[in-house]
């Protein structure tokens, strides 16, 4: 889908977008229905709130990953950045609540630096982002372990953990309201504005679609590239703060989340190699993936077969997307 096409036929673009989003949302709803039939507590407001709370970090991570994917790149470093955030949080706060806020600021600083490095390596050294962020994955993981000597040195104070853990009780209608959902809503809205509202989002899609053409039409491709990696890294820090909050200190919290976030985006209809995607799709994809994990657990499937199911669904989602595109052409 090119920009030219967008201007000429906005209606068909909206229709295509709606159709695409609907798939992930519909699949999610079907899966959630199945979950609820197996375990009725998921139909209660508290059950739904708890589900969203657990899925929130992956959803935020996927929304960040979306920016990089839409620009045509990949960010493999987010998982180890999450680990660094949790370990770093415990090192910086050392269970002292008064240090929480500057610790969080420092962690976002670290995220900013990692994002800038990723972006600069891709934009200026022209290293393909898979390799560049693979390098960062290794280095960031090593740095986290070096910093902590292999084991985190402190606990996370309660006010740090609130973003992932605190639940407000006796809230009207929904009964309980986890703060994590508020964080997800804010991040989702920010991402939506950045991707669909601001000019920046259109530039990302233009760069992902055809960087040469984007450059000729005046887009500063390098700035866009650096920008998307920064956004992804900041999303990873946010997800790290929430995961550390939900579960507490551990050393392998981010393991494998980079591929899960890419998978979530793919399920949500985001096109790898850039040019197409939506925030709704990324978040719905994350929820779908999470619902799938929950459903497979409830079904009592042996752990390994969950991987198999995930693999089949990934391939099916992309094959379906490719098939529709070919049919559309």
């Amino acid at each position: 889908m090119t920009l030219v096409l967008d201007q000429r036929r906005p209606a068909s673009r909206a229709l295509a977008l709606a159709r695409k989003v609907n798939v992930a949302v519909i699949v999610f709803l079907v899966l959630y229905l199945a979950i609820g039939l197996l375990q009725p507590t998921y139909f209660e407001p508290a059950g739904l709130m708890n589900f969203l709370r657990r899925a929130a970090p992956l959803a935020i991570l996927s929304a960040g990953q979306l920016f990089v994917l839409a620009s045509g790149g990949f960010d493999l470093s987010v998982g180890s950045l999450i680990t660094l955030t949790v370990i770093g949080g415990s090192m910086l706060t050392a269970n002292d609540p008064s240090r929480t806020w500057w610790a969080i600021a420092a962690l976002y600083g670290v995220g900013l630096a990692v994002g800038l490095i990723n972006g600069a390596v891709v934009a200026f050294l022209k290293t393909p982002s898979i390799i560049a962020t693979l390098g960062t994955l290794l280095s960031v993981n090593g740095a986290a372990m070096m910093w902590s000597g292999g084991a985190p040195r402190g606990y996370l104070p309660d006010n740090f953990r609130m973003f992932g853990r605190l639940v407000l009780h006796d809230v009207p209608i929904v009964k309980i309201f986890p703060i994590a959902i508020a964080v997800l809503a804010v991040c989702g809205a920010l991402a939506y504005w950045g991707f669909h509202g601001a000019v920046f989002g259109r530039r990302i899609l233009a760069v992902g679609d055809n960087p040469r053409a984007a450059e000729l039409s005046g887009v500063r491709v390098r700035s866009v590239r650096i920008g998307v990696f920064v956004i992804s890294a900041l999303a990873a820090v946010t997800a790290g703060i929430m995961l550390g909050g939900f579960g507490g200190v551990s050393v392998d919290v981010g393991l494998g989340l980079e591929l899960q976030s890419i998978a979530a985006c793919v399920v949500g209809g985001v096109q790898l190699m850039g040019g197409r995607g939506s925030v709704t799709g990324a978040i719905a994809g994350a929820l779908t993936l999470f619902a799938l994990f929950t459903l497979l657990t409830l079904l009592g499937l042996p752990q390994p077969l969950k991987e198999t199911a995930q693999g089949l669904i990934l391939i099916a989602a992309v094959a379906l997307g490719a098939w529709r595109r070919r049919r559309a052409v």
């Binding site: 591929l259 991987e307 992309v318 094959a319």
Partner: peptide
Amino acid sequence: VNSLIATLGVGLILQG
């Protein structure tokens, strides 16, 4: 199917 996703998916299936 994008090669990353195809082979990632096949890998997951095999491993599972």
